[in-house]
Structure formats: structure tokens, C-alpha cells
Design a protein around this nucleic acid. Structure first.
Lengths: 161, 161
DNA sequence: GCGGCGGTGATACACTGTAACACTCCCGCC
DNA sequence: GGCGGGAGTGTTACAGTGTATCACCGCCGC
């Protein structure tokens, strides 16, 4: 679904993501401020999951320091709008590749070799989870589903068949 | 599968867990040292997920301080043996309720009201995940699946039908 | 005895995230 | 024009989580 050959134009494309973010904010009457834009851009450009402090450092230049707390605030905003996701197992953030409804089941595929994070969603998987939860008498509010392993590209690269 | 009425005798029972831990270590030729036993006990007794610093505090007494580092080392050991699990979304640790093979699919059900964490496993769910990963060309090494929500007991308690 | 190894103690540190407060900017309103 | 008021940001300080490093101890084998 997504190709990962290079660092630029990864996923949906940085430009597309920024455009979508802007559209979402305008549509909801929210501000897409310069800082939020820069943070979104930094996350989108990275190609792999970024820590909040990494982003802060990237956005800082001699004479213009961006504090981590500002980055966190922007990230919180972007997460609320579903524009970025948090990878709990890495304490890091990625851009949302495909717009999904909030609460929809998504799996994060984290390659331990190249560090790229892909998203996958599956109705079958979601149904299975729903049934399992119902059987346990549990009402879900928020689900974290992250898989660490090797992506296809890295596997081929390591043992060229 | 597990009852959660009180804090003691929760899950499989503290005694059983300690016995199993000891057996596992003996079987594998590993040391079940006093510190490891105390940490295992603290996690098993708690009834809900414990932070490493909570455990360190609980094990410390006037005159006998247990540093968090030591707790982390014991927890790492216990996790390697599959005796405790880490809840990534809470930075906390729970005892493993039922012995499962390493890598087997397990869902953690985290009640946001009472804080108790239950484990559920489902072949159906696991199959769904496997197929989703295969379709994405991804080879899994480690999976995190945590659901936050309301457990049956808490739901009944809040809105007694 | 002596060396090695696993486990532990202890200090310091890095990384992650939040609280609290001040300031600015913009907008609506009198 | 003056005057709140709210959203966003800057800044400092701090809490929480996890790791690196070194020293020490006890045990086992040689």
C-alpha cells in the first residue's frame, strides 16, 4: 500500500498531508497555526517515528528555540484531529497515512530494522477483536495495536533470495 | 475467567504465581533470588498494574531501600521468563495470569475505572492478525495489544440496571 | 588462592511528559 | 477608542520513567 524506498515522498506525500491537515482544520473551524504546521511537517517529512524532543530539536535554529512543551501541545492538537498517531511502544509520533474514523481499528507495523512505521487496517481483525471483547464482557474505549517486526523490504534486503 | 471482587486472591492467586515462577526458574536453571521473588510478589499482590517506582517504594522499608534500578532488572528478568507483562500504555507491570507461549497473542483489558487489567486470548483474533500481517508482507516479532475501557463489573456498578 | 560470572547496590544521568504562569494577538463589544 | 476574554505560545520548573556505569559480593570451578 505504501512504498518506502526513500525518505522523501514517503507515505501519502508530505504536501498532501499538509494540505489535508489544513483542510481538516478549516472545515472544523480550528486554527492551523505556523507552529502546528511546522510540527505536522516535521512528523510527515521524517519517514519514521519521531520523538517529541527530536521534533523540537529539528524545529529549533540558532536564535529560535522551540521548547518540547510547545511541540507536545501541537502534537496533542494534531492527535485530537486524527492527523498524527502516537506509537506507545516507542514514545514517538507518526503522521496518519490514511484518514480513518476515530476509534477505527488500525494496526501499526513497526520495522525494527529500518524504523519505518506503516498502518494497516482489517475488518476481519476488528471483528475478531470485537467478539473477543464482547465475550469478556469488556466495553472498549481506546485500542492500541502495535506490531514490531520486519517489513518486506528489509527482509528482502537482508537475505536476497 | 478471572474474578475481581477483592484485592487478595485476585487472578490466579499470589501463592500459585510464586510457585509457578519458582518452578519455571528451577526448570530452566535460573535463579529465583529473594529480590526477584519480592518483586514478583509485589506485582502479584497489587491487583492492578504497578509502576516500577511503586514497586521500589513498596519493597523499601526504613533502613532497607530498594532502588528502582534493581526493580527494573528484576522486572526485565521476569518478563523474559514470561512471568510478568509490561503495559505499554501505562508504563506499568502486571503478573501473567495464565502461562502462554512466548509470542502467543494476548489482549490486555485495562479498566479505566477500577484499574484492573485482565488478559484475554483468542485464536480467532490471532488468526485475523496473522492474515492481516501476511497480507502486508510483515513478519511479526512482538505484538502489543491493549484495550482501555470499562470492565463488566464496573459497568454494572455504575448503572445498576 | 584466584579468576570469572551472575546478581545486587548506588550514583548519576538521559529521556519523556506535565504544571503553572506570563505574554501576545485577535476578536467582539461597549 | 478602550476593554475584556479566549486561544495560542514562550518560559521555567518539575515529576515520572528508564538506563549507563562502576563497585562490590558471593559462588563456583580450576
Amino acid at each position: 500500500m505504501h512504498r518506502h524506498e526513500s525518505h522523501d515522498a514517503c507515505h501519502t506525500g508530505v504536501g498532501d498531508m499538509l494540505a489535508r491537515a489544513e483542510a481538516v482544520c478549516r472545515e472544523r473551524g480550528l486554527q492551523f497555526t505556523p507552529l502546528r504546521r511546522e510540527v505536522m511537517e516535521a512528523v510527515a517529512e521524517a519517514g519514521k517515528a519521531q520523538g517529541a524532543y527530536d521534533i523540537a530539536e529539528k524545529l529549533s535554529a540558532p536564535g529560535k528555540r522551540v521548547a518540547p512543551v510547545s511541540v507536545y501541545r501541537a502534537l496533542d492538537f494534531l492527535m485530537q484531529q486524527g492527523l498524527v498517531h502516537r506509537i506507545a511502544s516507542r514514545n514517538a509520533f507518526i503522521p496518519c497515512a490514511h484518514g480513518h474514523a476515530p476509534g477505527e481499528g488500525v494496526v501499526f507495523l513497526i520495522c525494527r530494522t529500518c524504523g519505518l512505521v506503516d498502518e494497516a487496517s482489517s475488518e476481519e481483525l476488528e471483528d475478531g477483536l470485537d467478539r473477543t471483547l464482547k465475550r469478556a464482557g469488556f466495553t472498549p474505549a481506546h485500542t492500541i495495536l502495535e506490531v514490531e517486526g520486519d517489513c518486506g523490504a528489509c527482509r528482502e534486503r537482508q537475505q536476497p533470495s
